[in-house]
Computed example of a mutant assay.
Amino acid sequence: MSWLSLTFRIGSDYVDLVGDRLLERGALSVDVHDAGEGTSQEQPLFGEPGAPPDQFWQQAEVTVLLEENANIDEIIQEVAEVIGSLALPEYQLAQVMEQDWVRLTQAQFEPIRISSRLWVVPS
């Protein structure tokens, strides 16, 4: 089994509207982050844990996980309608293959030496 990962950029004002609409249409997940992440345009946001930030990014990059047979043209058209644009947003599409996600996540952990005789080792 595989899925589709659809990524596009929109103004942050539309993130909640677009995310909610795509989830209603059957998206499996919606991930949002700063479109400028890792560049000179990155906008770090700070605040107290659990409190909404005082500001939001100007541009957000949205990645949506979809069923393999999703109609991408319809979804992009719907995004354009929600944001009130006549032009369709540019997007990237990638296939996400089935993997053992638990094992993949656990592979990032290394053994930790506590003392000469005690190690914490992931199973």
Rank of each mutant, 00 (worst) to 15 (best):
S2D: 11
W3Q: 07
S5P: 00
L6N: 09
T7R: 08
D13N: 00
D13S: 06
D13Y: 00
V15M: 01
D16I: 07
V18S: 05
G19R: 11
D20A: 15
R21S: 11
R21T: 10
L22E: 07
L22I: 06
L22C: 08
E24N: 06
R25I: 04
G26A: 13
L28A: 10
S29N: 07
V30I: 09
V30C: 05
D31H: 15
D31A: 15
D31T: 14
V32N: 05
D34V: 09
A35Q: 04
A35I: 03
G36W: 06
T39F: 11
Q41I: 04
E42A: 08
E42Y: 03
Q43H: 14
F46G: 06
F46A: 07
G47D: 02
P49Q: 03
P49L: 03
P53K: 00
P53D: 00
D54I: 00
Q55A: 14
Q55G: 12
F56C: 13
W57I: 05
W57T: 03
Q58P: 11
Q58F: 15
Q59N: 08
Q59D: 08
Q59K: 09
Q59L: 10
A60Y: 14
E61N: 11
T63E: 13
L66G: 04
L66C: 05
E67A: 12
N69P: 15
N69C: 15
N71P: 06
E74L: 13
E74C: 09
I75T: 05
I76F: 10
E78A: 13
E78K: 08
E78S: 10
V79C: 04
V79Q: 00
E81K: 06
E81N: 02
V82S: 13
S85M: 00
S85N: 00
L86P: 12
A87I: 14
L88Y: 05
L88K: 04
P89N: 02
E90D: 14
E90M: 09
Y91E: 05
Y91K: 01
Q92T: 12
V96F: 01
V96H: 03
V96Y: 01
E98Y: 01
E98H: 03
D100Q: 08
D100K: 07
W101V: 14
V102L: 09
V102S: 05
R103L: 12
R103C: 11
T105I: 09
A107Q: 14
Q108M: 13
F109S: 13
E110D: 10
E110Y: 09
P111Y: 00
I112K: 10
I112M: 08
R113S: 08
R113G: 02
I114G: 08
S115P: 09
S116K: 14
R117P: 03
L118C: 03
L118A: 02
W119K: 10
V120N: 01
